[in-house]
Write a protein that binds this DNA or RNA. Structure first.
Lengths: 208, 208
DNA sequence: GTTTATGGATACTGCTACTATCCATCCGGC
DNA sequence: GCCGGATGGATAGTAGCAGTATCCATAAAC
């Protein structure tokens, strides 16, 4: 198909598709002549994935590119690809809390990880975010929200296992990689909206 | 205290504080003379909350203002404030999926809500996001990730109850409102990073 | 053979979140 | 009382991001 059809079928404007091509988010179409290229279902799927990451999961274009490069890589292991995705969905943060507050939070996170027996890199982006979040919650006088950390971790662990089980049910390694990436990124959006619904429910029952 | 000390203690640059004052995120200091104002602990706390929403939870400035206005309102009920916060953390989306795909997803969400007996507005922002996410997952051929929706919902419901219990343990209504707002927004960041850690753990055990 | 679409290049735009500059005060130390 | 640096308030400027718009030589469709 040509670019007009790709645009119509994906709902993405032609200039935007050209922009994604320029930015390397979308592989170039196969040139049939110097100024004529043809695109296929693979491009259409890619485009849907790109829009989902940008619109639904709010991933910036530069990080979408990093994710797609990891997805297309034939040298990275699945575990390494997950690392790329985690870095892509974690905004880089400049540390804000005071030193003592942060080391206290870091210690608490360290203990949590040990209690749960989690095998994670000590400098993974999620740890930085978690430590920062806990120390900010403390500084805002919201220690009570932190006190349930273990229970949150347990509940989260449960559905993460479900996700992984769902992903592992596929057999083609390429499909698994794709599911891991999509599951990590869109799963976040899914869980977040379920959480808001659960909150709204409780709020409507208790507080109104 | 004067603006320089507020800046030093919060770690926010003076011009940025002035910007927040202009934008109405931060209430003006008490004027002691036409060009001299004094700020107090309340301003410092506000500033910490603002930075947490912007840096950690990635809430845009305009929505931070909406959240703070809801927080300071003395006419909104707690339930209404939660509505404001939910709208603030949900990016406005233009619908992308085809009609039939979306109505199918909407039906599935409707059934989920009925099964769980959730009391939620049919047009709440979380529902829109959830429907959109499900139809996108479908269009990407990731139906298997959707199939565990009920189990996710159950797990999410569990820790949402924990959060609410934590918040309800406070007694001053103003403190409860503040905890609700902070819990909704920073709780999201907290859960998201726990989810990434749980993923990294499973990934490291299974896939490496 | 003319109208329309296309690939590729370059330039422009709108928005967000700050930064910078200016100026008339004002404070604090001498 | 005097002076250097800080302050409040106003206005203007900037960087980065995500597209949009325009142009042009060529190719496809009718």
């Amino acid at each position: 198909m040509r670019i007009a059809e790709l645009s119509r079928r994906s709902g993405v404007a032609v200039p935007t598709i050209k922009y994604y091509l320029r930015e390397g988010l979308l592989p170039p179409g196969e040139l049939t002549s110097p100024n004529q290229a043809s695109y296929d279902e693979h491009h259409l799927n890619r485009l849907r994935l790109i829009r989902a990451m940008i619109d639904l999961a709010q991933v910036p274009v530069a990080r979408v590119r990093a994710v797609l490069e990891a997805l297309d890589s034939d040298t990275l292991s699945l575990h390494e690809r997950i690392g790329v995705v985690h870095r892509a969905v974690t905004p880089s943060r400049q540390l804000t809390a005071g030193d003592s507050a942060r080391t206290a939070a870091a210690l608490q996170v360290q203990e949590l990880i040990e209690r749960r027996g989690w095998a994670v890199e000590p400098n993974s982006p999620a740890i930085t975010t978690l430590v920062e979040t806990i120390s900010v919650l403390r500084s805002l006088g919201q220690d009570h929200l932190v006190s349930f950390l273990d229970s949150y971790a347990e509940a989260v662990e449960r559905f993460t296992e479900l996700e992984v089980a769902a992903v592992a049910s596929r057999d083609d390694p390429d499909q698994i990689a794709e599911s891991v990436v999509i599951g990590t990124i869109l799963g976040e959006t899914l869980v977040a909206s379920l959480r808001l619904l659960a909150q709204e429910n409780i709020s409507s029952r208790r507080l109104r």
